[in-house]
Amino acid sequence: MAALEVVAAFALPGWVGPLIVLAAVLTTAAAARRLRGLATISLAASPLVGSILLVNLFLLPGAADPIARLGPIGPTWSGLWFGLQTVARLMAFSLAIGLVYLTTAVDDLLADLARRGVGRRAIFVVGAAVQMVPSTIGRAGEIVDAQRSRGMDTEGPIWRRARGVLPLAGPVVFGALTEVEERTMALEARAFSAPGRQTLLRVPADPASHRVTRWAAILAIAVIVLARASGRLG
């Protein structure tokens, strides 16, 4: 479904695509009680949203319908409109992907991949990538605490906070690399590369309703892509 939403957000013309996707994402998130998580993702995206709006508002090429005049440059209506539409696409895309993270149990995802015969190395890469996000967030929080305890200012002016980039980024990156190395060795120690097919501890449920939804989403992606490629969506 997330793949369909991402494709729809970019392939459907004008406001239709992003607004349909945003409505679908928000409805699903409300049903899954994940609106707070989406609010956090929106907050994280706010610097990017702000910069997109500003750039388009003042610098959209060919825009000639000024809202006001501020010296040599001025905000334009078409820049504002295009900026808002771009932001809507960006948020539809980000929130659709974010909702996958917020609602997908990693164990279920990996078990399902294994059931479908995906190789164990590919499953490890997917699992490590997905699990790295929360573990890196947790590690980063502890690193921030440790450096603040040594007097690093994370609450002062921006130029003072900028000095904290290396003390924060260094342990995060080094810790992530170390963790991957340790996890790889721990897997090898438990016969990760042993020949033969792995058995499954459990098989996740895949009811008919899920299968129908999945195939409908794949079909819809194909239809949208073909319609877009043939110029029928404008």
Binding site: E142, A146, R148, T154, E155, G175, T178
Partner: peptide, 23 residues
């Protein structure tokens, strides 16, 4: 009171050194 200000009075050494070493 900010943590940065309190750090001058209370020094806290964390359990895991790898969560702070960077230099």
């Amino acid at each position: 009171v900010h943590v940065a200000a309190l750090a001058a009075r209370v020094g806290l050494a964390f359990q895991n050194p790898d969560r702070q070493l960077f230099a």
